[in-house]
Simulated assay, not measured.
Amino acid sequence: MRIKEKFYKETEYLLYNYKMLEISVENMKKEIEYLEKEDEARSISGISYDGFKTGPTFKINSIVEDTLLSISEKISYLEHSIRRMESRMKSINKSMEGLNELEKDILTKKYIEGKQWYVVAYDVKYSERQCRNIRNNAIEKLAIGIFGEIATLLPDDSK
């Protein structure tokens, strides 16, 4: 079965950057911890609005409120990003379960560990050409597992 080129490339991109996705999630979790501590440090027990002039909209802004809102928005954005990245990593992991051990081994060595083809071939005891062919089939399987049937070419697709 052939898949659309963009899904093949996207699958390769995800595999090449898998470690960085993991690292990014960890960094974002640490950033949330830092922002939450910063938020706690800046928290205040009450705000007095006596003496503030209001405009026609009666909107009152203070630097503290703007900062707290900004921290809250940053945390929300980071949490959303973490969920999205973890979801993508779970779909990669789940799709990898559909591959045989040789396919998993070749993809892991080539993309996640970043080894050269001759090293991959030596490790799995196949020729480089065989490894590349196995990789091509495995990437196609993964793309379908990650993106679904949209990744497949329809019979009337010519590109």
Rank of each mutant, 00 (worst) to 15 (best):
residue 42 R to G: 15
residue 89 M to S: 07
residue 124 V to M: 02
residue 97 E to V: 05
residue 117 W to C: 00
residue 41 A to V: 04
residue 126 Y to W: 04
residue 77 Y to V: 02
residue 94 K to Y: 14
residue 94 K to R: 14
residue 96 M to D: 14
residue 93 N to D: 15
residue 97 E to N: 05
residue 63 I to K: 14
residue 115 K to L: 14
residue 65 E to C: 02
residue 29 K to V: 05
residue 95 S to G: 13
residue 48 S to L: 06
residue 79 E to R: 08
residue 56 P to H: 07
residue 101 E to H: 02
residue 123 D to P: 00
residue 119 V to D: 14
residue 78 L to P: 00
residue 34 Y to M: 09
residue 51 G to D: 07
residue 93 N to Y: 10
residue 79 E to H: 02
residue 110 K to P: 06
residue 95 S to R: 11
residue 101 E to G: 04
residue 60 I to A: 14
residue 46 G to N: 06
residue 128 E to Q: 10
residue 87 S to H: 08
residue 43 S to T: 07
residue 76 S to H: 02
residue 87 S to R: 06
residue 83 R to Y: 06
residue 38 E to F: 12
residue 126 Y to C: 01
residue 31 E to R: 15
residue 52 F to H: 12
residue 114 G to P: 07
residue 82 I to A: 09
residue 94 K to E: 15
residue 33 E to G: 07
residue 41 A to K: 15
residue 85 M to R: 09
residue 73 E to M: 09
residue 112 I to K: 14
residue 42 R to M: 15
residue 119 V to E: 15
residue 41 A to E: 14
residue 58 F to R: 10
residue 94 K to C: 12
residue 95 S to N: 11
residue 75 I to K: 13
residue 121 A to C: 08
residue 67 T to P: 01
residue 57 T to A: 13
residue 29 K to A: 10
residue 79 E to L: 03
residue 127 S to Q: 02
residue 47 I to R: 15
residue 124 V to E: 01
residue 70 S to W: 02
residue 33 E to A: 12
residue 121 A to F: 01
residue 110 K to F: 13
residue 106 I to Q: 03
residue 35 L to I: 00
residue 98 G to R: 11
residue 100 N to A: 04
residue 74 K to P: 00
residue 92 I to A: 10
residue 29 K to T: 03
residue 74 K to G: 00
residue 111 Y to V: 03
residue 94 K to D: 15
residue 112 I to V: 12
residue 122 Y to C: 01
residue 111 Y to S: 06
residue 80 H to W: 05
residue 33 E to H: 09
residue 37 K to G: 08
residue 60 I to N: 11
residue 78 L to H: 02
residue 85 M to D: 12
residue 108 T to V: 08
residue 86 E to N: 11
residue 108 T to H: 14
residue 96 M to S: 14
residue 102 L to D: 03
residue 69 L to Y: 13
residue 75 I to L: 09
residue 47 I to P: 03
residue 92 I to M: 13
residue 50 D to Y: 10
residue 125 K to Y: 01
residue 39 D to H: 07
residue 109 K to C: 06
residue 126 Y to I: 01
residue 69 L to G: 12
residue 36 E to A: 03
residue 104 K to H: 05
residue 124 V to Y: 00
residue 116 Q to L: 10
residue 69 L to P: 00
residue 123 D to N: 07
residue 102 L to F: 01
residue 74 K to M: 05
residue 42 R to I: 15
residue 49 Y to M: 07
residue 86 E to K: 10
residue 86 E to G: 06
residue 90 K to Y: 11
residue 45 S to W: 02
residue 44 I to S: 06
residue 32 I to Q: 01
residue 34 Y to A: 08
residue 60 I to L: 13
residue 58 F to H: 09
residue 66 D to C: 08
residue 83 R to I: 06
residue 40 E to S: 14
residue 89 M to E: 07
residue 109 K to Q: 09
residue 91 S to E: 13
residue 30 K to N: 15
residue 107 L to F: 06
residue 59 K to A: 08
residue 128 E to R: 05
residue 42 R to E: 15
residue 64 V to L: 15
residue 57 T to E: 12
residue 71 I to L: 11
residue 117 W to N: 00
residue 89 M to D: 06
residue 85 M to K: 12
